[in-house]
């Protein structure tokens, strides 16, 4: 199944326009799909996960029997409104750049006493119908508090600029059996695979749209997926080695995309096909 999907993706890409439709018919299709997406927007099952996440956030848990309410996600202890629009960022307490998901895990370790290993063992629910993980629920809750906030991923600290530079390099790095880079699929205008418009990260509006709508509830999976998962799955599609959860590479790519998406308005968790 997975294998077949990948192959059809590649074939579609090499043909470039996968349908034998006229341009106007394609535009009509695109308009109707847009309408479909709008109809789905009010009633996003990710809201259920946000509720679960909020409860978890405020619940005393872990060996230290503490809540996460004192967690500093970059705007000060206990502040969660808007944080997802200004992450990844440099954190002095760990002397490195962290993305939202890394920082949530960090708070669970420092405040609640969980171990990094147990928290990162299985961050995503992956089989159909499996209950979503606590990590997914916590992430859903926190990002939901950033709706409407303007993206402004900081580049003031040297380590933030280094993170961006590494992310950019990785974005253009070609490899794997198909010699693809992220840029192969994501730096071209009007590129599509099946009916999916691929965002061109060189264009601000494209980058904004992509960055501000993750995490997203994926209709095809019946589950909300996080930004870390999104990258993990693009690595898989690219036939790159598995992208480790919370790895420096994942954080750097998020920094790169976030900087490219400056001034976009956060709108996640979104809902996607």
């Amino acid at each position: 199944m997975k294998q077949r999907r990948w192959i059809s993706t590649v074939t579609a890409l090499s043909v470039s326009i996968p349908f034998a439709l006229s341009v106007s018919a394609q535009q009509d299709t695109q308009k109707e799909i847009e309408r479909y997406r709008q109809l789905l927007a009010d009633g996003n099952p990710a809201e259920l996960l946000e509720m679960r996440g909020e409860e978890l956030w405020k619940q005393k848990r872990g060996p230290k029997n503490a809540t996460l309410e004192a967690c500093d996600l970059g705007l000060g202890a206990g502040k969660i409104g808007g944080v997802n629009a200004v992450l990844p960022r440099y954190f002095a307490d760990v002397d490195r750049v962290m993305d939202l998901e890394s920082r949530i895990v960090h708070c669970q370790v420092t405040l609640q006493g969980f171990t990094q290993a147990e928290l990162t063992k299985r961050p995503y629910s992956l089989t159909v119908g499996e209950r979503q993980t606590d990590h997914e629920a916590l992430t859903a809750y926190v990002v939901g508090q950033s709706r409407g906030a303007a993206v402004n991923v900081p580049q003031a600290h040297a380590k933030e600029r280094e993170s961006f530079a590494r992310g950019e390099k990785m974005f253009y790095y070609k490899g794997g059996p198909y010699d693809f880079a992220c840029a192969t699929c994501h730096s071209v205008d009007g590129q599509r695979i099946r009916l999916q418009d691929l965002p061109n990260f060189q264009k601000a509006d494209n980058a904004q749209r992509a960055f501000t709508t993750w995490p997203a509830y994926r209709v095809s999976q019946g589950a909300m997926r996080t930004m870390q998962w999104r990258l993990y799955d693009c690595f898989r599609q690219q036939r790159f080695p598995e992208l480790a959860f919370l790895s420096q590479a994942s954080i750097d790519l998020i920094t790169y995309m976030g900087v490219k998406a400056k001034d976009g308005k956060m709108d996640s968790p979104a809902i996607k096909r």
Partner: peptide, 27 residues
């Protein structure tokens, strides 16, 4: 089972609009 999310809003004309999200696998 996880809680439902229920939104009930009073609109013009005295109509209450209700939207219910339910967590269920629907296998």
């Amino acid at each position: 089972s996880d809680p439902m999310r229920i939104r009930a809003q009073l609109k013009d004309g005295g109509v209450t609009e209700v939207r219910v999200l339910m967590a269920h696998i629907m296998e």
